[in-house]
Design a protein around this nucleic acid. Structure first.
Lengths: 126, 126, 126, 126
DNA sequence: GTGGTCTAGACCACC
DNA sequence: GTGGTCTAGACCACA
């Protein structure tokens, strides 16, 4: 099945972001092996070249490193993963705040609204 | 200019959501006139019928009402607009809290992270 | 403005029925003068010939009679008007009963439902 | 065969009413499958889109529900069907009582005239 | 010029 | 095959 790509940004960058999110979220634990380019491309419904480019980008940032014959592996550099998690959460939070501001919520209201939502949420996890 | 539509949801529903957001955010004040179906369709880069369908949906919910020959007007029903703002903020918060959870943040950390981000943000509004 | 004509029956017959209804309801009192063919045709949005044919039909039944130069007049024959009112009410009632039967109402329920509706109706006339 | 549509009301709304009547009358029992959009459109002599719109309207009211690939099914919610039957009979009665009043019948006469008609009618059903 | 309706024809996902 | 969406283009009533 093809994922959903936005027409405004290059697809490979969108893939980079998605993969970053999955790595940060622990879908691929540190040191584990990523699926092959071919498999990832198939799953995402994109051309293998596009996926290749996305993975090259991840490699450039040091998040994954290629072992020529054995495939690509997630870095075991804990600080880097922490840093990734941090920057991604920043990105999500900024989007959240911007959208709530656009709705007319004040900066004071926003954290309280978030806290209230979480308390109200039944599926909450501590 | 054509907007960005996601392939997974019907375009007319995405338009409904975008317009709801703009109305909730005050882009179209209560009682003001919306651009004509044709103009909105042109701006969004969709067929007038598609835009018409989206507006019909907004009308069904009572957010806007059509005056045969004069155009469509935003409701002046303040409670309804308040309610809209509330439900849209709920939707945004739920989406983004889920994404932060997926990143490994705990329910306790999230509101604090949001508050910290806002304090750090230069473009803040009171 | 053009009236609403059904495609299944000749228009002139539909006009006959409408005029019968108006005469029976007292819109044109006994002995009064009908508007000219031209005016009636204009109002109904049909060709004068069609209206002419409808009026000829009314004349055939004796409901109206033409005075060559002065126009057409509603009959003053009271029994005939009574008879008309009767047959038209029969026609309406038969339609009502058929449609309620089609909805699953029994012959016992129908008159009671009608009576109940009238009692519930605020705009009732004694 | 093409049905008869009135020029004054949108066709799709007339179709909604006709279908409501047929459902209320039991032509399509609860839980049964409606003919496909295309078949209904063909039978009614309208464009499939028009029929689609009518069915979407029925779906909005919860009278039928669509199962993506299998077709549309009449609701099995008995109270809703009862409610439908009631509101449709109200509508029919109000329309026809108005017409009888316009004919000069008093509110007292009407139910009796209906009862008399039924007793006189040979095709009556208990 | 506005909203609204209708038709015709195409394409998609699902099974 | 099913329902659903989208486009293109036409027509209407209203004022």
């Amino acid at each position: 099945m093809a994922w959903n790509f936005d027409g405004s940004t290059p697809i490979y960058l969108q893939i980079v972001n998605i993969l970053k999110g999955e790595i940060a979220g622990g879908a691929y634990p540190p040191g584990s092996r990523l699926p092959s380019v071919r498999d990832l491309a198939l799953e995402a419904g994109v051309n293998p070249n596009t996926m290749q480019r996305a993975l090259a980008e991840l490699e450039r940032t040091g998040l994954v490193n290629a072992q020529r014959t054995a495939g690509r592996f997630i870095t075991e550099d804990a600080p880097q993963l922490t840093q990734l998690r941090y920057s991604m959460s920043e990105q999500i939070i900024s989007e959240l705040v911007e959208r709530l501001r656009a709705l007319g919520l004040s900066d004071e209201q926003i954290p309280d609204a978030v806290r209230a939502w979480i308390e109200r949420d039944h599926s909450g996890q501590s």
